[in-house]
Structure formats: C-alpha cells, structure tokens
Design a binder for these strands. Structure first.
Length: 99
DNA sequence: GTCGTGACTAGCC
DNA sequence: CGGCTAGCCACGA
C-alpha cells in the first residue's frame, strides 16, 4: 500500500457534507508531518472525482488550494452544504471529519 | 543519490 | 496580525 493510496483511501471515507484537513489526513495515514505530501497525492489523484480532494482543507480553516481552481473547490463544497466566506470555512469544527 | 517543487504547519519576530 | 523561516514528506527529473 503506497502512501498516496492510503491518502486517497482516507479521503474516500470523508462523508458528504464534511471536510478534513491535510494535517488530520496525514495523521490518519501514519505520517503526522506529511501534510505537504498529502497535498501532492491529492493533486494528482487518479480517482477524481471519486476521491473528493475538495473536501480536504488547510488546518487554518482556509480552504487551501485546488488543481481545478480554488473557486471551483469552494463551489463544490457549497453544493455539499458547506458554506465558505473569503476562503474560510464557516462552522469549521462542526464540518470537520476526524478519523 | 541529490535537487527542486508543492493543494502544508508551526514557530518567531 | 502579517511576513519569514525552517522542518516536514513524496515524487519526478
């Protein structure tokens, strides 16, 4: 099982309407300091859109980046019921999904 | 094996 | 609070 595979698998577990952070995700795969690597894995995930990379955000409640454009990311999240204001997630702690 | 890069984080000033 | 630095991990050249 590659690192990236674990990342994608973990992301798939995130239920609709919830989000997770790169940090939590990194921790979930056993490398709490691999937040950057997590971002890498998401960016080139071959399972999109099955793998909901747009549900992964930074630990600072900001949405972070997105290969298809941050605006698109925000739009997708909004469609799932998550409200975002100026790149920040509202009710972040309530929407946060912990593994 | 090394270097550069990135959707990151935490600590300092 | 904004900006900078260093540490972190995986990947491709």
């Amino acid at each position: 099982m590659n690192f990236e595979e674990k990342v994608w698998l973990a992301i798939k577990k995130i239920p609709k309407g919830k989000v997770s952070t790169y940090r939590e995700l990194a921790k979930a795969v056993g490398k709490p300091k691999a937040s950057r690597a997590v971002g890498n894995a998401c960016n080139k995930n071959p399972f999109a859109p099955q793998t909901a990379c747009h549900r992964v955000v930074k630990s600072s409640v900001e949405v972070g980046g997105f290969a298809q454009g941050t605006k698109k990311k925000i739009l997708l999240l909004k469609k799932e019921g998550i409200e975002i204001k100026k790149g920040k997630i509202l009710d972040f702690e309530k929407r946060l999904f912990r593994f």
